[in-house]
Design a protein around this nucleic acid. Structure first.
Lengths: 144, 144
DNA sequence: ACCGTTTTCTTGACTTGTTCAAATCAAGGT
DNA sequence: ACCTTGATTTGAACAAGTCAAGAAAACGGT
């Protein structure tokens, strides 16, 4: 969990201007892994008092383009963000409640990341999503 | 590419009522792999003359729930459907134009499908998406 | 072959998540 | 301190998909 000054550092090093919304949104992403935009908007407001809807969208895009956050979007879900970038980890997604958990890449890095036939594509990333039911949803089946 | 009677068979075997829209949509999915809903709507209309927006959505959902079509939805893309079900294949997605291609599962089935730590989830599927640039988009970089 | 039940299709309004655009405002180099 | 460039606010717009009510069609039983 980076300190405020580390947050500033991260922004500056990415040659992004350091503004209150950006610091707050980035901190919120660190504190709420896999959170959706609405959650991050709420978290940001609880720090700053008020930020626009749009600012959070813009900031998340800027952070994403700068490589400071990763954007994930499992099918049927809204966009979610996480600050854990740079490593090659994957995700578990609950079919029932949509909650997301991290998984480290199982087999080193090789097999999963190489397609048997790339059809001429220049592949730069292999993403693995494991679908299932989270512990909570297993214990109350089909409930909710 | 199944014949009309095979299409009917597929529907009946899935205990779905056989209707003109269903036959047309299912045939359209066979003919347009990885097509989005709008494309399928157009393809269906070219067979039937007119079908509602809603009917196509309903039919696609019914076919999906019956396991006759697979729904894929790469991040940032609309829902796409394919009739190739039952085998464990994955997808290549072009970051630039969004086109999707099939890849057979590289390493048999074992390593990719087992998470190193399942965090208590009951996993029923592992989905792999390879991101990159398709041959066309490589030759006209950043164009479009 | 017809009937009734049940499911599906049509129509049209509506929600949700996200983006666009114009005007205002602030960060940070000079 | 100023100025330029980039960020934020405001408010509208957009696209994909969903909801709901009634009309229509499928198919099992008679």
């Amino acid at each position: 969990m980076p300190s405020p000054s580390q947050i500033e550092r991260l922004l500056r090093d990415a040659s992004l201007r350091v503004t209150a919304p950006r610091k707050a949104v980035l901190a919120a992403v660190y504190e709420n892994p896999h959170a959706d935009t609405e959650t991050l908007l709420a978290a940001t407001r609880s720090r700053l008092g008020s930020v626009s809807h749009q600012a959070v969208y813009d900031v998340l895009r800027a952070l994403h383009e700068a490589g400071l956050v990763r954007r994930i979007q499992p099918a049927g879900s809204v966009a979610r963000y996480e600050a854990r970038v740079g490593d090659n980890h994957h995700h578990l997604v609950c079919r029932s409640c949509g909650v997301v958990a991290d998984v480290d890449c199982a087999v080193g890095e090789a097999p999963c990341l190489t397609a048997s036939d790339d059809a001429g594509f220049a592949i730069d990333e292999a993403e693995v999503v494991y679908w299932g039911l989270c512990p909570d949803c297993q214990s109350r089946p089909a409930a909710r």
